[in-house]
Simulated assay, not measured.
Amino acid sequence: MRALLVVNPKATTTSGRTRDVLTHALRSDLKMEVAHTEYRGHARDLARQAASEGAVDLVVALGGDGTVNEVVNGLLAHGPSERVPRLAVVPGGSTNVFARALGLPNDPVEATGALLDALEHGRERAIGLGKAMSEGLPDRWFTFTAGLGFDAGVVGRVEEQRRAGRRSTHALYINQALRHYVTEREHRKNGPISLQINGHEAVPGLVMAIASNTSPWTFLGNRPVLPSPAASFDTDLDVFGITRMTAFGTARTVRQILRSHTPANGGKEPLGPSGKHVVSYHDVRHFTLVSQEPAPFQVDGDHLGDRSRVSFTGVRRALRVIV
């Protein structure tokens, strides 16, 4: 099988020696070229070129969720198609939400072994993805989440800290979330975001809104975060929002999204967070978020600046993944 390995040399949990070992292991089973990313967006460019030229059957992303997202957007630059190469992932970031949601080990060496086994036995699956669209800007595919409002503001603060030289750790995210909570006092009471779904009344006053393509949404260490526990690669998108973030209410919601959810009364779908200020929808094909003022926007943990209007759509069986 012809393959391209896209390596992020700045991946936080793999050393140069480890990446060399993984590359050698993959080359034992694949006719593989290796490309190292040199700038933001380079993984997207490499994957887009590979898909356009039709020179490879498989693109392997070795890096964190940002690298994976870029590769996916490159592969799907012209939309889903049977001609699009398959995707494989070797986790190398601090969290690796997408890889773990696929059931891959978080350790890159173990994940490489699982990938080689999947290739040997021909295991793959077609997964659904989300797509975010803003007028005048390129569409952006996402593998597990996109958010507008408070959560994206936290992501933006973390990225500022990383540019200043801080390491990406779970403690850094928690610290910046608490700081953001303190500074966003007015928005926590009167959110600027409105959720619009065809056939439903608009939901105004959202402080934050998160679109999930799978569950968990992210991890704190090994603890999954579950705002939309029924979200799945086999359905369309789930939406979770909060209309008011009081100290007591927020603490209650955080506890809910950090625990397991079991179906009630024999139901098939796991229960998500509930409460007076919680909004949730399951398996939604299309919806739009509109903000009265530009609000922070993130896709797969990547802060993309501020947006006033973002439309979302779920695309089933958008990409084939080696698992």
Rank of each mutant, 00 (worst) to 15 (best):
F150L: 00
F150A: 00
D151E: 10
A152F: 04
G153Q: 01
G153M: 01
G156V: 11
G156Q: 08
R157Y: 00
Q161V: 12
Q161Y: 13
R166M: 08
T169S: 12
A171K: 14
A171V: 13
N175M: 13
Q176M: 15
R179N: 09
Y181W: 14
Y181M: 09
V182Q: 08
R185M: 05
H187T: 09
R188I: 04
R188K: 10
R188M: 07
K189D: 05
K189T: 07
N190V: 06
N190C: 02
S194L: 11
Q196N: 09
Q196I: 11
I197E: 05
N198A: 15
G199N: 10
E201M: 15
V203T: 11
P204S: 11
G205C: 07
I210L: 06
N213Q: 08
P216Q: 11
W217S: 07
W217H: 13
F219T: 03
L220E: 07
G221S: 13
P224A: 09
V225G: 09
V225R: 14
P227W: 02
P229C: 08
P229Y: 05
F233Y: 03
D234I: 06
D234F: 02
I242S: 01
R244A: 00
M245E: 01
T246V: 13
T246E: 07
F248S: 13
G249R: 09
T250K: 06
R252G: 12
R252P: 07
V254Y: 05
